[in-house]
């Protein structure tokens, strides 16, 4: 159904913090079926590309940017990220 006009001020249930373990994330991606995940280092951190899912992750010390065109992929990677990060 179509969402009605309203103010959307819902806070997330978890606030992640700290540095991401890229090794853990790569392992998680593989276990989630994204076996073609490819890790490359760049100047500021690293980039993971998952061609089969049309997804790219740009990882820095305290930030991660997920770029994709698929809703399911975004949610899968989000859940993996939250598993790999500490949170309050």
């Amino acid at each position: 159904s179509k969402p009605g006009p309203s103010s959307v001020s819902v806070y997330p249930s978890r606030y992640p913090y700290g540095t991401l373990s890229v090794e853990d994330l790569m392992q998680g991606l593989s276990q989630a079926g994204m076996v073609d995940a490819r890790l490359e280092e760049d100047a500021g951190g690293c980039i993971i590309t998952v061609e089969s899912e049309d997804a790219m992750l740009q990882i820095r010390d305290n930030s991660t940017h997920i770029i994709t065109s698929r809703l399911e992929t975004r949610e899968k990677i989000r859940d993996l990220l939250l598993k790999c990060l500490s949170h309050i």
Binding site: P16, Y17, T19, N62, S63, T64, H65, I66, I67, S69
Partner: peptide, 15 residues
Amino acid sequence: LGVTPHQIRYTQRVD
């Protein structure tokens, strides 16, 4: 708490 938040950003492409 003395910790640094980890910012997650999502960018979804819609054609």
